[in-house]
Design a protein around this nucleic acid. Sequence first.
DNA 1: CTCGAAATTCTAGCACCGCTAGCTTTCCGA
DNA 2: TCGGAAAGCTAGCGGTGCTAGAATTTCGAG
Lengths: 189, 189
Amino acid sequence: MQQRRERDRAQRHELIISTARELAEAEGWDAVTTRRLSERIEYSQPVLYSHFANKDAIVAAVAEQGFVELAAAMGAARRKQVERPALVRAVVDAYLDFAAANPALYDAMFTLDIGLRFAQPDSPPALLDGFRQLSVTFEAVVEDPAEIGTFTEVGWAALHGLATLTRAGRLSDGQHEARVDLLVTRLLS
Amino acid sequence: MQQRRERDRAQRHELIISTARELAEAEGWDAVTTRRLSERIEYSQPVLYSHFANKDAIVAAVAEQGFVELAAAMGAARRKQVERPALVRAVVDAYLDFAAANPALYDAMFTLDIGLRFAQPDSPPALLDGFRQLSVTFEAVVEDPAEIGTFTEVGWAALHGLATLTRAGRLSDGQHEARVDLLVTRLLS
DNA sequence: CTCGAAATTCTAGCACCGCTAGCTTTCCGA
DNA sequence: TCGGAAAGCTAGCGGTGCTAGAATTTCGAG
């Protein structure tokens, strides 16, 4: 009985997150208002606030889901390729494809920038996992092991820059392959 | 007489832009509301709308100012250094220093992402100028001239990624130099 | 089965947002 | 000095995130 209630509550918690995500992906984050969101889940606004401290916390929950999925996508890509040059390329593609396929989700993770810190006790494990997926991928191409951390950060920054500038329409169309080729051959090999 | 009025009007136009910029830099773009802005310039809200179509147009005007200044900063750095490795490094530093020194301005240029397109007739010349500053800088380090455009886009993406991730506090502290070194030696040389 | 406290949910409202219709004031040439 | 034009303001619209307090539902004790 008590458990039944907690189960229902957890279910509604997830419903809020998935509904916010769908609405954002369909119409952008500006369309995700507490009114529209509460309407969609068929509860009143205050119910949202019994699950989350504020709207930012809802966005942060969506972002965390994104980090889990991004880490999984890179992990899957890594497991499919073992040879060196193809491996790096596969993970890079996985990252950029993820960003392109889930623009609103990627916004929640990076652009909207709720106060999610890295390398803090409160930062979600998925966030560190994603970083580690990149790190392990680059291990093969960097000589000095002490350099891996820095190398990963620079590689990640390059990927993030490509993802955001592409989304903003600020890079020339039809040159995507050429850019990724250049990045992988010059920086990541 | 008529001219006097036009001069006053142009002056107020600039006042709006600079006030918006100062307010954003001091308290973030969330604090830049039409009410607070009109209060600061000591006119009522509708006056803002006699100069700009909407609030986004004000942000876009600030962003354009940013593109002018960024292009100038890179140009100045380029003119101070002529030797090859130091040249690239100087321009890269100029870019990252600019982003770090003017976070709200950089947000207006890239993150807030008003509908500013690149390579369109309506895109401000300063925007193309900035791209050209990078392009000219990289000319020396890329063999195939046909590759310069792609090379510039990738280099720019890496810089943009570093700037945004650094601002968000998502890269490890105290490793900035190491990251820039790595980027310049591996990608941009 | 009934009652009443506790848990849950909703209504209604706050202060703020971007934006604008329409009134009031100021300007300036005839 | 006057009157039309230009300029600026007040007040308000529909929207936002968020919340106090009222209304409802739940559910165990008697």
